[in-house]
Design a protein around this nucleic acid. Structure first.
Lengths: 211, 211
DNA sequence: CGGTATCCAAGCCGATACTG
DNA sequence: CAGTATCGGCTTGGATACCG
């Protein structure tokens, strides 16, 4: 029952930080960007966080109007419209952070990877591409629509994907940001595999800012 | 000599937070957006922060490559190119935070106000406006250039401003976001006062997200 | 001016245990 | 499944005092 501490600063940035500046808060928001999740899903996506802390952050975010709770076969948490407006902010922040010289090793959550794709999408590299993809990462399904310079990622499988890529976040990450060879990778590609390979090239590998 | 704690998450957002997620860090960046500052300037702009914390944050930000230190008649801190790339992120975050239902009362720093202007600028409301302003807030000088749908704010006075507005941050804030009457306000307007008044109308008053 | 030293309180981590 | 309760240990933040 902690009263959340405020900067007491009327600036918009400070007020934003009053709401989403506490530790783990923004990562919880990240995990909710593409759809509702349960408490347990959040816990396992955010490795190393105590249930205690998740619980408190959720309470604060709900109180602030960023997150809502619903009952849908158990409780689920989801972003409010205002919370959803953090999406572009997180994409921009992720784009900036991807250039950090520090590179922690660890697992990437499926949702974090999706934000990373949005952050690194290069419109010019997709100027002549128009395709719909289904990404399967574990039990999660995402739709990725590339439409000549624009990208839209949503949760849930698209109706008629041109290609389906099934793998795990780590492998997809490598295929997009690292070594792009498909051979031998634990990936299952169906549909138009040329288009699938094309997808891996519309994202830029972030270049670290020089120290 | 604290090793900064990391989320240990390779996601760009988490890596960004590793660098600028600690308390006060982003507000220090905000204060440096429009130019270098001294330790003491930072202390007084950020009301309620201990010198202790400013010192530690600066050390961390310097170590991370966000801030640089120079000697220029005393030490000054300034954003590195990478740090400067946080500018659009902060503008977006400020835009979001300005809609928070919570409204702390307190003083607005001059730099915070400048970011607020950028955050709330409405291109459509300036479609037919082209003017250069000088804003004087205490001893600080800023240039504001509005060029038909675009705004650019810089520190330091412009060469040939169309209008000069001298006041304090609180008053300017009211003139822009609140009651726009000039009468009786502690403001000194010189040059084209019609253009000056016009400036107050190219920004939107943020509407709070419904709780 | 530009910080460091010290101390205290609060918060987070991590584990574990427990409940509706 | 979805959390709350509690506890120890440690880390941070906040306040004040102080020093080159």
């Amino acid at each position: 029952m902690t009263a959340l501490r405020s900067y007491g600063d009327p600036c918009g940035i400070a007020r934003a930080l009053d709401v989403i500046g506490e530790r783990w808060a923004l990562l919880i928001v990240r995990e909710l960007l593409f759809g509702p999740k349960r408490f347990t899903d959040l816990r396992e996506a955010l490795t190393g966080v105590s249930p205690n802390v998740v619980s408190q952050r959720l309470r604060e975010l709900v109180a602030a109007g960023v997150v809502g709770r619903r009952k849908e076969g158990g409780r689920v948490y989801e972003l409010t419209p205002w919370g959803l407006d953090l999406h572009p902010v997180l994409v921009a922040l992720g784009k900036w952070g991807a250039r950090s010289p520090a590179r922690p090793k660890g697992r990437l959550s499926a949702d974090a990877l999706m934000v990373a794709l949005e952050s690194t999408f290069v419109p010019a590299q997709a100027a002549d591409l128009r395709a719909t993809y289904e990404l399967r990462l574990g039990h999660r399904r995402f739709s990725v629509e590339v439409d000549r310079g624009a990208i839209a990622i949503g949760s849930g499988a698209p109706r008629r994907p041109d290609a389906v890529v099934a793998t795990d976040p780590g492998t997809l990450r490598r295929l997009v940001f690292g070594d792009r060879r498909l051979a031998g990778a634990p990936v299952d590609v169906r549909g138009d595999s040329r288009l699938a390979r094309r997808l891996f090239r519309v994202f830029a590998r972030p270049r670290p800012a020089e120290a």
